[in-house]
Simulated assay, not measured.
Amino acid sequence: MQSDRDAIPYYLILRAGCAPYVLNANRHVLRREASPLLRAFARARSAPTSIAEDVWNDFSGLESVSNLERMDMRAYALVQGAESEHQLRLLSAL
């Protein structure tokens, strides 16, 4: 059985003074909370990057994130592309 791509967390976004965002592959918000385990997984898996790029415009607009804030927000990629269906299901449970 294949995982629902829209339900799998692909990104963890940290914003100062706000709850973190967990986003799917299309950068749509799945939830506005992240377990300590998901945060640790993100930090161990990848380096944080800025969301100042154009690909983040839709997310930033929907969440009313200013251009200045975008430079300080950090995104962690949770999925690298080579994960098995089992690994993606486990990630969805974090």
Rank of each mutant, 00 (worst) to 15 (best):
D72I: 06
E63A: 05
S60D: 06
A77D: 15
Y10G: 10
A25G: 11
E33G: 13
S35M: 01
S50A: 14
F59S: 03
N57T: 10
R39H: 06
Q87K: 07
A44F: 12
A82L: 14
P36L: 04
S35K: 02
D58N: 11
L94H: 04
R74V: 00
A34T: 02
E83R: 09
N67C: 15
A19D: 10
D4F: 08
P20F: 00
L37G: 13
F41L: 07
A52I: 05
A75Y: 07
E69R: 04
L94N: 01
R45M: 10
E53C: 11
A16K: 12
E63W: 02
Q80K: 01
M1I: 00
Y10E: 10
N26P: 10
F41M: 07
P9D: 10
Y11G: 00
A52S: 12
L30E: 06
D6V: 04
L90F: 06
E69S: 03
I51H: 05
P9K: 04
E53K: 09
I51G: 04
A16R: 12
A42Y: 04
A34W: 02
A19V: 00
S66D: 14
A44M: 11
N57L: 09
S64A: 12
N24R: 06
C18E: 15
I51W: 08
L14Q: 08
T49M: 04
A7H: 08
I8R: 07
E69H: 07
D54C: 02
A93Y: 11
E53N: 11
D6P: 13
P9Q: 08
S60I: 06
L88P: 12
M1Q: 03
L62T: 06
G61E: 05
Q87R: 09
G17K: 00
L62F: 13
N24H: 06
S46L: 10
D54W: 07
E69G: 00
E83M: 11
A25Q: 12
S66P: 14
V29G: 06
Y21K: 03
L37K: 09
L23D: 01
D72P: 13
R70W: 08
Q87Y: 10
L90T: 07
S92C: 12
V55W: 15
V65M: 09
E63N: 07
